[in-house]
Amino acid sequence: MKPTEPQTKLSRRSFLKVSGAALLLLSGGGLYRAVDQGVFSTSKGPAYEPWAIHAVNQADLSDKAPERLVHYAILASNAHNTQPWLFRVHADRIELYADLSKNIGTMDPYFREMNISLGCAIENLCLAAQAHGFEPNVKLLDGDIDQAKVATIDLSPSSPHSSPLFHMITKRHTHRGAYDSNKPVSVALLNEMSTLSDHASSAKLLLHTDQQMKEQLGSLIVQATEAIVHDADQARDSHRWYRHSQDDIHRFKDGTTLDATGNSTLVRVFGKMLSISEKSSNAYWLKSTKEVHIPTASAYGSIVLATRSKAQLLEAGRLWQRIHLWATSKGIALHPLNQVNERLDREQQMNLTPHFGDALRSIVGGHGEHVFLFRMGYARDQALPSPRRSADEVQLQ
């Protein structure tokens, strides 16, 4: 059965109602609040400058300072937009550290998502290094899972080589909105995506395109989202990264925002004008998962590992970043849906019945240990950027 297409068009009557409500909200003090909440300054201001200043041009690529590479590393995909990275830059190497203060608590008790996020930064850094005339040699440090120093990237002089993926770094954004259910990702592109796994890496990509498997995964994702919403600790730890006010966005320069949810302009305007509680935010997340994310997914992808060590989680991150950059170059939208893994980790932490753990093991079979899940499709509109801390703010002296 074909998934029901989400309702995206307003009737004339609904449009008039919405327009009238908008005028009421914007009248009097509402106009002041609209300005204060950034209704008229979407994706603008200090928190978004890192995306704008990295236009790829010859002057940029001629800058051989290793510090320049950090500017690209910070634009990597990362869990809950926590940006859990710190860099120490030397003349011939860059050291990467986990910023343990950015852990998501009960949403990531074993630092799975944190280390995957750090792997994404490594991939961006290596692509930037090659484009700027360095040959990167990555050494992953496979110590304790929460060890602060995670990698050293040695840099030796080389001929500049700009990968097509490098040029996608400033264009890549997570798209959390509806995808076009009438436009599936082609088999040829799925086959090309499946080749992105590095044969030397332990991280491997599995694609799920069978309708029965898609329905099974969709149901599992909804169940996991419901479980998180009804788990007071996880609900709190997830919501505390939501940045609603304009002041918070530009003060923290991290976290999730209403603009990055993939909603229509009208929904985002109303959302910014209203106060959003943890309960209402989580209820909306669950509703979007059920009515938008699952029904419009063209296919799903999983990243699996031989074992879930820190070094292999970093490799998983490198693979995810590579996949996302490649997909951006093909016009394919991607969206991590890691609720099932977040519940698996919670089951282990609390010694609960392994409902989600057993389900994931059944799905991947003997291919390895499941650590990451995402959906894909063709988006109907452009994804908006998330806030970013600047390169200067994440460098250690």
Rank of each mutant, 00 (worst) to 15 (best):
H230D: 14
S186I: 04
V229N: 08
I276P: 01
Y300C: 05
A260M: 07
T307I: 11
S186F: 01
S219P: 02
A299E: 05
Y242T: 10
A306S: 13
R236Q: 11
D259M: 09
V222D: 04
Q246P: 05
L258Y: 03
A203W: 00
K214M: 11
Q211H: 11
T265E: 12
E215M: 14
I276N: 09
T261D: 08
W241M: 14
N191P: 01
N282V: 02
R236D: 09
I249R: 07
T195W: 00
D248C: 04
A297E: 05
Y242G: 11
D210G: 12
R236K: 12
D180M: 05
I294W: 00
S277M: 04
H230T: 11
Q212G: 09
A306R: 12
V187M: 08
L196D: 05
S238G: 07
G271R: 01
V304I: 12
K287I: 04
S264H: 07
T195G: 05
I294G: 08
S238I: 05
H208N: 14
Q246Y: 06
I303H: 04
N182C: 14
P295T: 15
R240A: 08
S197E: 04
T289Y: 00
D247V: 13
A178M: 08
L305C: 12
H239Q: 10
N282Y: 01
D247Q: 13
V187S: 13
K253E: 08
N263Y: 04
S201R: 01
L196A: 09
K214C: 09
S275R: 15
D180S: 09
T257S: 09
Q246G: 04
G262Q: 07
W241N: 12
V304Y: 01
N191S: 11
R243N: 07
S245Q: 03
Y300P: 03
L190H: 09
S280M: 10
V222E: 13
A200T: 13
G218N: 03
T256E: 13
D231K: 06
H250G: 12
S277D: 07
Q223I: 05
L206Q: 15
D210E: 15
R236A: 13
L206W: 01
R251F: 05
K183M: 08
A283Q: 15
A235E: 08
D247T: 10
T209N: 11
F270M: 14
L305F: 04
L196S: 06
L205E: 03
R268P: 00
A235W: 00
E192D: 14
G255K: 03
Q246F: 07
S302W: 06
A306Y: 05
R243I: 01
L286T: 03
A260Y: 02
S181T: 14
S302E: 12
